[in-house]
Every structure is written in structure tokens, then in C-alpha cells.
Amino acid sequence: MGSGKVLIAIMGLDQHEVGAIAVSSALRDSGVEVIYNGRFNMPASLAEAAMQEDVSLIGISVHSWEYLYLIEDLQRALGELGLSIPVVVGGSIITAEDREGLLEKGVSAVFGPSDSMESVVAEIKGMLV
């Protein structure tokens, strides 16, 4: 299914990049093709980029609470383009409650500080096959 490419990005004005860069680098080390879209992505333009690049998965790194709104907007934007690309979210600020909420809203996986990089990479790769 799909290209097997992963799009990693940070949304809105959240500017913390450590997590996104670490996950991108670990995925690349394990042989996954990663498009790192960096900071300042808004839902519509990110959905557009996902379509252009024909990615199989979108990973959003979050370190600011604005994700609580932007993830929903992203899902809506993907829907409007008729795309059903899985979205995964990771970040240390996600509480157990937020995690449940995200999964309910259709986010495919949520990663927090207790997940090892190994398990994050394994889970993402599992979703690509």
C-alpha cells in the first residue's frame, strides 16, 4: 500500500524540533524514506504536501497545546482532499487523557515519553506494510 514514505512535521507556531528530528533520524536509520517538513505547517498546506508527496503516513511532533485543535483541522483537511492517510502523533506533553481523546478522533497511534524509540519505529514501520 502506497509509497512507504513518511511525512514528519510540526504544526502551527510550535517550534520545538528535538523530537521530530530524533524520530526522523531513527526512521531513516531503519530504512524508511522520510520527508521532514520542519516547522510552521498549517493543516491545509500539510494535507496538500502529503498528497503531492504521496506519503503513506503523517507523523506530527507536538510540544505545544495548539495540536489539540490543529490535529482535528488536519484530519478535516485530509478528508476534504479525499485522503485516508494514517496520522500518528508524538510528544512529551500528551497526557493519558489526551491520548484517549486523540485515538477516539481517529489518530492511528499516539506516542509519549514512555515509548522507546525502538517501539515507535517498529510501530510506524508496522503501519507501512
Partner: peptide, 22 residues
């Protein structure tokens, strides 16, 4: 907050979900 640090006003579209939170 994040918009202020980037010299973006509170009423800018990017500030909507983050003004005053950090």
C-alpha cells in the same frame, strides 16, 4: 508566547490556537 517571539500579532491566523498559552 510563540507568536510574540516570532513577531506575529495575536490576531494573525497562526496565533489562533496558541496566543497566551506558552
Amino acid at each position: 508566547d510563540a507568536p510574540t517571539m516570532s513577531m506575529i500579532d495575536a490576531d494573525h491566523p497562526y496565533s489562533k490556537y496558541t496566543a497566551g498559552t506558552q
